[in-house]
Design a protein around this nucleic acid. Structure first.
Lengths: 168, 168
DNA sequence: CAAAACTGCTTGCATAATACAAGCAGTGTT
DNA sequence: AACACTGCTTGTATTATGCAAGCAGTTTTG
């Protein structure tokens, strides 16, 4: 809980929270993969985060206010992690980073299809997605449109397409 | 020059390049502060980067293609660092991160005025700014509008305002 | 009803990144 | 001739990360 910031610049303050190799990966998986439990985050991500790092990041993100932690009623040892409003507002940041990555880095089709939809959809889509995240994570009423389902469907279609083409 | 990526996800690949505490600070200073020399970057930033870290980051960013390094004709020991197209395209990322930081973190007015203008200006302003960066860093013809000057003027006005209010 | 699997983590240890202070060889200015 | 400036490097201390193993309790399974 150190209150000594390097500067009051918004970019710097953002980096003091998100400027490492894992924080945004964890948030990405919570947001786009709907991973809500420790083990899900630990085992279901492509990148393979270590358990001690994951534990540390979850603690820090709760501490900084980007996510919250609650007990899972269905299992006495389970914890549910949820995005807060602060975390949900990272949608435009992910959209911008995704576009940049897609433009300049060797992304795979499967894993960049969501970024493409997010880029094409623009702020209107981001808003719809954020509304849905408020429903999924904060108990807000569900909007009609499910951007999450659209992203997921596009991803799974891409996976399938890829499998077909490989299984000549 | 390791080619082993954790995954082909655009967010992940972006983090593999920019996911640390200093890379984006260096790029921010080059972009918004027009710092082009090593000592400028070393001494004129609020955050106080260490010289070995700065040297390492400049090397890495050149290596990854976000900036370039040239000899300064005016001084045999001087090097000029310039943004590449890849670096210039980070403008929307900075805009998104700046907006998020401004919304949720304890920013100071002086240091967030540029983020505010960038947010209010939207994609049209970002485009104009990127055109100007191409002129400043890549030798492209100068556009009429100088977003850089606008940002700088707003910043200096904010500094002045702040000094006035403190010197009761 | 015992074995197996699953829960959110912790611990120990090796390696890598960061921070801080000092310094260096060459260049340009006074 | 003295001094300040140039882009760095070097050395050392601390912190972050990566990897493998394990743990106490809970739930599912044969």
């Amino acid at each position: 809980m150190k209150d000594t910031h390097r500067s009051g610049c918004p970019i710097n303050l953002t980096l003091e929270i998100l400027g490492d190799r894992w924080s945004l990966i964890v948030l990405r998986d919570m947001m786009f993969g709907n991973r809500r439990h420790f083990r899900e985050l630990l085992t279901k991500s492509e990148e393979g985060i270590a358990s001690n790092i994951l534990a540390d990041r979850l603690r820090r993100l709760v501490d900084k206010g980007l996510i919250s932690r609650q007990d899972d009623p269905s299992h006495k040892q389970k914890a549910i992690y949820s995005l807060t409003e602060m975390g949900i507002w990272l949608v435009p940041v992910f959209a911008a980073m995704g576009s940049w990555g897609r433009k300049f880095l060797p992304v795979t089709e499967e894993l960049s299809i969501r970024a493409e939809l997010l880029e094409d959809g623009g702020p209107a889509l981001w808003d719809a997605f954020m509304s849905e995240l408020r429903a999924l994570h904060l108990g807000a009423p569900s909007p009609e449109r499910s951007v999450f389902a659209e992203l997921q469907a596009a991803y799974e279609a891409a996976v399938l397409r890829n499998r077909m083409s490989k299984a000549v």
